[in-house]
Amino acid sequence: MSVSVIISTLYKRPREFKECLESIIEQTVHPTEIIILNGSFDGSWENVKEEFDDIFKKMRDAGIAVKHITSLGASLPHARNTGAKLGKGEILLFLDDDVVLERDYIKNLLKVYEEHPNAMGVQGFITNRVSGNNPLIRFGFLKFIWWLLQRGYYEVDEHRQLVSLFEVLPYRLTRTINRESFSGTNMSYRKEVFKSLEFDERLKRYAIGEDKDFSYRLHKLFPGSLYQTPHARLVHQEAPAGRLPSKQFETMKQVYHLYLFYKLFEQNARNKTVYVLGRIGDLLLHSILFMTSGFKKEKALKVTYMIEAMWLALSNRNRIKKGEVNFWTREMQKIT
């Protein structure tokens, strides 16, 4: 079963990206090709071109074809769609540029497709995502509150996509499980999926939620076809470079999440209540973090940005419902 690896990058975190590519070279089962969508627009690529040319040569020497596509300033969904069209593999594996794969990641990913013929998508397990000391794992009362507020919480061997756009996430996997949506850090799909689905290019730039949107739509088309295996393991380094500033992030998050709520879920009283509870729960969480941090300024700004962004989304709910989701880039300037 052939694999095409697709990575969109701005070359803003070259150290992490090099480690990602090295981990692909070291795989026990190599992909047929790697497609790199270069979205840099500020000279980031030119600054590291020479050292990456060496890595690309190393990949070709290992028998991995390298396609380096320039797509200046393209959104993440556009880059993913471009990669899906170019990919020749039976399986298309989308990776963030700051992940590091364990040596048998691809081998164990493919094993799930072989064992589950109905699988349309398979995801690996991020080993450093959740600490066992997380309060939502250690204290049942907190978990109950988060369940009540639909903020999302952690379980063993379970995943659910909540109407609030948060999730019930597995902090530990002991077996291969079904999922209802995927994280974009590492997600693979059969090539045939893209005959009927594509990533939503209304979501621009960093495109918060594009991964949930695509995978949840696939889940609704083919229930029970998305899997996560504990044996395809990786580390997500979560490099801060290349990520949106806090104010932009919060605004995009609130606007795009409301858009996805309208797009993905039935608009009834129960679902609307759940969505609102999720926003309250998220705001409560960060308010608690602010108060327990010694009232640090950055925590206060986080809460302030959340409130402003929620109000902006609520005030523009009718246009968001219609798919007008990028007005916030102009509106945000008015409240800055």
Rank of each mutant, 00 (worst) to 15 (best):
residue 215 S to Q: 08
residue 138 R to K: 14
residue 232 A to K: 03
residue 23 S to V: 10
residue 190 R to W: 05
residue 62 A to C: 11
residue 121 G to D: 01
residue 279 R to I: 15
residue 189 Y to L: 09
residue 40 S to L: 00
residue 287 S to G: 12
residue 266 E to D: 13
residue 241 A to M: 14
residue 324 E to V: 12
residue 109 L to I: 14
residue 16 E to F: 15
residue 322 K to Q: 12
residue 242 G to T: 08
residue 64 I to N: 00
residue 325 V to C: 00
residue 109 L to M: 11
residue 26 E to W: 05
residue 66 V to T: 07
residue 105 Y to I: 00
residue 229 T to M: 09
residue 120 M to K: 12
residue 37 L to I: 15
residue 265 F to N: 08
residue 7 I to L: 09
residue 293 S to I: 12
residue 47 N to I: 06
residue 174 T to G: 10
residue 289 L to R: 15
residue 149 L to S: 04
residue 77 P to Y: 08
residue 131 S to F: 00
residue 163 V to D: 07
residue 50 E to P: 00
residue 75 S to Y: 04
residue 31 P to Q: 09
residue 254 Q to P: 03
residue 221 L to I: 15
residue 310 M to L: 14
residue 5 V to N: 07
residue 193 V to T: 13
residue 79 A to H: 05
residue 32 T to V: 05
residue 264 L to Q: 08
residue 230 P to H: 08
residue 31 P to F: 09
residue 72 L to H: 12
residue 281 G to I: 04
residue 321 K to D: 01
residue 166 F to N: 15
residue 76 L to S: 07
residue 33 E to H: 05
residue 33 E to T: 13
residue 309 A to S: 15
residue 86 L to H: 06
residue 240 P to R: 01
residue 62 A to V: 11
residue 231 H to L: 12
residue 24 I to D: 03
residue 21 L to I: 06
residue 271 N to I: 00
residue 4 S to K: 13
residue 140 G to L: 01
residue 59 M to A: 14
residue 199 F to K: 08
residue 257 H to G: 06
residue 208 I to W: 06
residue 17 F to A: 08
residue 201 E to T: 15
residue 243 R to A: 09
residue 264 L to C: 07
residue 8 S to Q: 15
residue 276 V to S: 02
residue 306 M to I: 00
residue 319 R to M: 10
residue 275 Y to K: 06
residue 219 H to F: 15
residue 45 W to Q: 11
residue 132 G to I: 03
residue 283 L to G: 04
residue 109 L to V: 04
residue 1 M to Y: 01
residue 213 D to F: 04
residue 178 N to I: 00
residue 43 G to Q: 09
residue 331 E to N: 09
residue 317 R to I: 02
residue 307 I to P: 01
residue 273 T to Y: 12
residue 252 M to A: 13
residue 104 D to P: 02
residue 326 N to Q: 11
residue 113 Y to G: 07
residue 47 N to R: 14
residue 132 G to P: 01
residue 182 F to M: 15
residue 329 T to H: 09
residue 336 T to D: 12
residue 223 P to G: 01
residue 59 M to V: 10
residue 169 L to S: 05
residue 38 N to W: 01
residue 101 L to F: 07
residue 167 E to A: 11
residue 269 A to C: 02
residue 210 E to V: 05
residue 303 V to Y: 04
residue 74 A to P: 00
residue 83 G to P: 11
residue 21 L to R: 02
residue 258 L to H: 00
residue 296 K to R: 15
residue 314 L to N: 06
